[in-house]
C-alpha cells in the first residue's frame, strides 16, 4: 500500500542515471544553439543601435556646444559694438559742447567790445557836448558882460 519510493532500488526521487550527462550535453548544445540563434543576432542589433544612438547623441552635443560658443561670440561682439557706439556718441557730444562754448565766448567778447566802443563814443560825445556847451556859455556871458558895459 505504501509506495512512496524515495530511495527505491529502481526509480525514486534521487534516481541518478545517464539522464544526467545526456541532459548536460543537451544544455551545452542548447547554449551553442541559442548563442547563434538568439544572443549573437539580437546582441549585434542592440549594440549597433546603442552605438548609433550614442554617436548621434555625441554629435548633437558637439553641435550644441558649437552653437553655444558662437552665440557667446556674437553676444560679446554685440556688446563691444554697443560700447563703441556709446563712446562715439559721448565724443560727439563733447565736441559739440566745446563748439557751443567757443561760439558763446566769441559772441560774448564781441558784444562786450561793441558795448565798450559805444560807451567810449558816448563819453566822447558827452564831453564834446559839454565843452561846446561851456564855450557857448562863456560866449554868452561875454556878450552879457559887453552889453552891460555898453549900456552904462
Amino acid at each position: 500500500m505504501l509506495t512512496f519510493p524515495i530511495f527505491a532500488t529502481e526509480g525514486g526521487l534521487f534516481d541518478i542515471n545517464a539522464t544526467l550527462p545526456l541532459m548536460a550535453i543537451q544544455i551545452v548544445a542548447l547554449t551553442y544553439l541559442l548563442n547563434s540563434l538568439f544572443f549573437k543576432p539580437v546582441g549585434n542589433i542592440v549594440e549597433n543601435r546603442e552605438k548609433y544612438v550614442s554617436k548621434n547623441f555625441q554629435e548633437a552635443k558637439n553641435k550644441l556646444a558649437e552653437v553655444e560658443s558662437l552665440e557667446s561670440d556674437l553676444l560679446s561682439q554685440l556688446q563691444k559694438a554697443r560700447s563703441e557706439a556709446s563712446k562715439i556718441v559721448q565724443e560727439a557730444e563733447k565736441d559739440s559742447d566745446k563748439l557751443y562754448q567757443e561760439a558763446l565766448e566769441l559772441a560774448n567778447s564781441e558784444a562786450n567790445a561793441s558795448k565798450e566802443n559805444a560807451r567810449i563814443e558816448i563819453e566822447k560825445q558827452t564831453s564834446n557836448a559839454r565843452k561846446q556847451l561851456s564855450e557857448q556859455a562863456e560866449e554868452l556871458s561875454q556878450l552879457i558882460v559887453n552889453r552891460l558895459i555898453q549900456s552904462k
Binding site: 534516481d15 539522464t19 545526456l22
Partner: peptide, 20 residues
Amino acid sequence: EVGQHLYWQIGNIRVHGQVF
C-alpha cells in the same frame, strides 16, 4: 506517483524518458 519514471533503455544505459 512520486518518483516513478518512464525508463528508456538505450544500449545498456537507462534514462528518464519523461524528462527528455
